[in-house]
Write a protein that binds this DNA or RNA. Structure first.
Lengths: 131, 131
DNA sequence: AAGCAATAAATGCGTTTGCATTTAATGTGC
DNA sequence: GCACATTAAATGCAAACGCATTTATTGCTT
């Protein structure tokens, strides 16, 4: 039960806000420029690769991401439009939708991952004291 | 020079993403419900109170916040529409705009601050181990 | 089996955001 | 003093988001 002072709380919140803003902005920018995808789209691809089968139900994806159900739906729609994933029916439960990486999507992720890791390294290791 | 592993980098990023999403979502929700203002609007009011004079130039506000110049401009416009701040000319530099809290704005901030601190306390002290 | 609640995903809609541009005022070089 | 770059703020516009609703399917109760 550490008595956390009010100024300490605010300091933590502002640090969090600062870190998030800086990193997410850099990620979005860099991924967009280098690979034509946004941060949310990359996160979806990353989750699909994490799931070894690389074929996940929308609902499971939604649980692993910090996006509303509708936002995820549209993000996947954009990925499909760009040919990076495919949506398919699920025989077991016909309400559900499977999302699967395409070859192009896997390749795009492979390259984008390097970019992302680079940005993360820059922001998390560079200057521990700065910001 | 701590050699930061790739998985460690990703862990940190996901922690950051999780924390930010959780806290900002809770803040936005709670502030909106209880006081009819969003997180960005509260942050502006908070900055104005921080600046003891409570009268800041847009440009200075922008520097202290993680919002684009245009987003700040519109956020202040909403605050003005709701009667929480006033915009006024700056005699020294007629390009600049001063933003000042109104009595209503100060009062609204006073109450909203309690709400905000409560949410922060909940998320930063509650369970240090849980996410 | 029928009716009704619950669940999965998609969609309409309004809000907020960032980028690029515009408008207005200031500063600078000649 | 006059053109031209620079700076401050506002605005047009499109993208992305969340909420609420819709559509389709499944599960549950009787």
């Amino acid at each position: 039960m550490t008595e956390t002072g009010e100024t300490e709380l605010v300091r933590r919140w502002r640090d969090l806000l600062a870190s998030y803003s800086t990193v997410s902005c850099a990620l979005d920018r860099t991924l967009q420029e280098a690979h034509g995808i946004g941060m949310s789209e990359f996160e979806v691809l990353d989750r699909l690769v994490d799931a070894s089968c690389e074929k996940s139900r929308m609902h499971d994806l939604a649980g692993a991401m910090y996006l509303s159900q509708s936002a995820l739906s549209r993000t996947v729609a954009r990925l499909e439009r760009d040919g990076l994933v495919e949506r398919s029916m699920c025989a077991d439960d016909r309400r559900a939708i499977f999302v699967k990486l395409t070859a192009v999507g896997r390749e795009r992720h492979e390259r984008a991952r390097k970019t992302q890791r680079g940005v993360l390294a820059e922001h998390f290791t560079a200057t521990p004291a700065a910001v």
